[in-house]
Design a protein around this nucleic acid. Structure first.
Lengths: 205, 205, 205, 205
DNA sequence: GATGAATGAGCCTTCATTCAT
DNA sequence: AATGAATGAAGGCTCATTCAT
């Protein structure tokens, strides 16, 4: 027990938190944050409403935690796959396909993530500071990759910060298409398409 | 009267509707759809709450109408500017810069438009059928432009439907960056950047 | 209308506020602040719960307003009757009997007033500043009367501030006895009793 | 064991009860009955919430028991000190100063006791019958003292029952002033003041 | 006996919508 | 047509109490 660093209590607690998050993920994705009620989440999790509040201080916090977890997961996968790639082109390809694949397996996460992202547009102040950090962290990842590509002569000289965002946005858009069912291609095809356009746009030769 | 196709009553009615929409545009953009109240809108419009319901059947419908109007305005400007351009490259440039400029002058519209767009991700069912039409209409515009470019030999042979969406998404992303204040470049610079990457990605030579 | 200084709307609004306060007075007195619900008040007033919130911002504020109004009423009656008395003894008598009479006619007010007063003991911080002012205002009234009595030679030289409080407390206690039904004497008898003990205690001769 | 009249189990049980009561005393005094939670009490006592319910059937009953114990303690001290005094004047003085001293050393008890006393005003029905007995018991104590004083010729002929209550109320008021921090005198001074006014009011000569 | 996770009834407050004037 | 008072359903959150371990 001590070896694992967790007491039985903590394990149970994390299990419950996990169940609630899982229920919330489905409910939020199905109804949207505003239309989802804490009762919905409790019902889906098979527990009483009050129990939810033993594990989370507020409805909003459930949402935030959900995004945070998915975000970190996505981020670490992306980092891992990009690190495994050698050339900048392959790193870009890894970035795109990791996200595309993740969106297929974690569709609900992306629904929440993107809608939260866009809600920022309406009310930026709502963005918790931590979210801002997460976004920045992501942007840096691509920006540095591109900057290295420039130094290596693999990528055209350009405003890497702006292009990094552009890469994100284009990828995000393609994923959104898939989620909305507007693309009937498989993930690989979509990833290739995005990669090719972008790489031709920014790569040398 | 009949000549104009509108009775005096209709003119007055449209005037009021317009005032309410204008008020709603500001309120929704400032607070977000969920946090905005019908009272806020009525106050901003300088009328009584009940009056709002003489012109619109529900809060939701005000929002929808707002998006629709802005959407049609944006669409017609885009069409006009693209038609004025000769080459596909210039049409693409026109597409991007028209939107970028519009986002500067109608920032609130884009805030609503994009957040609504993203809410589709969470709850597609909410999308009124007409919205679907509007999106499709837009997509077609770019798709046909690209297809013609392909026929003319200006654009690489490719899945024009998918690329059309990609162009939209990339442009949307760049505009979102601007709205969020994450870009300090002026509209022209951002438009050029997006154009260059995309055109290098899809154009011939 | 202008002559009265009130529009019809204001009259109606005040009427409603009054109805709600009246209902709240009965409900609070019957159940205590904590056990009373806004629904109880709305029901008693014969209106919908939401309507209550058109006239008062919160349950707490209804309570505060209730106390404030009764307080001011009691205070003005007390001042009037004390002013009408010539000697300090008569002023003291007026003070006591005004309150005793008021407690008979506005029993619910005293129930609330005294229980609020005592809740101060448990949580002084809750006392809204305005309440503090009201209490001080009251204390000053008796203190000045006693001070004048001292100057006139009608009252023994003494700590008038402390005695003023003592007079209040003794009167309050007698009223509480009546409200609790522990006194079967009529108001006049109780008032005389309190007066005699106090006057013998503080008056000259 | 039988000699002591208590089994070991009972001793332990009483110890725990005492701990809970002590914790509750602090919590109730700090937050007021309504705002205090059973969790607060359990935390302060260093036990689990459920354990509280092994010793008390409800939150309310903890409160009642708390009042009862303090009450009996106060009562027995008062009786003892009054018995030690010879003259009625000294007995009255003993009554007042015993309470005044007790309020300094058991401030929390008085906060609860007085606020509960006043809550009776709002909801007399809540008063458990036993409380009624406690109050009566107290009243009798002073009443009999005064009656004896009358017989001895030390006290004026008067309605001893009513005066007994008056003495209680005046003392209570002075203590409340102290608890509220409205008196900066020391306990002795306050006790003297109350005694002098009352004794002049009821004593012979 | 002790625990504390779980419960769920209940409360205050908000606000889209209605309707009498 | 315009008003805005009134409505009441709904939701987030609290907390006294219970009960399986």
């Amino acid at each position: 027990m001590a070896v694992l660093g967790k007491t039985k209590k903590e394990v149970v607690s994390e299990f419950r938190s996990g169940e609630i998050l899982e229920a919330a993920r489905l409910v939020f994705a199905a109804k949207g944050y505003g239309d989802a009620t804490v009762d919905d989440i409790a019902d889906k999790a098979g527990i009483a409403k009050g129990t939810v509040y033993l594990y989370f201080p507020s409805k909003r916090e459930i949402f935030v935690e959900l995004i945070r977890k998915g975000f970190l997961d996505l981020h670490s996968r992306t980092v891992k796959n990009m690190d495994a790639a050698e050339t900048t082109a392959d790193k870009l390809r890894a970035f795109i396909s990791t996200r595309m694949d993740f969106s297929d397996s974690s569709r609900e996460f992306f629904q929440l993530y993107y809608s939260e992202y866009s809600n920022l547009l309406a009310t930026p102040s709502k963005l918790s500071p931590e979210f801002q950090d997460l976004y920045d962290q992501q942007a840096k990842l691509m920006e540095e990759t591109l900057a290295r590509g420039v130094r290596r002569g693999e990528v055209k000289k350009m405003n890497t910060a702006a292009i990094a965002r552009l890469v994100y946005d284009t990828t995000r858009g393609a994923i959104a298409q898939r989620i909305l069912g507007w693309s009937r291609r498989d993930a690989k095809e979509d990833a290739d398409l995005v990669f090719e356009v972008l790489w031709r746009g920014i790569g040398c030769e």
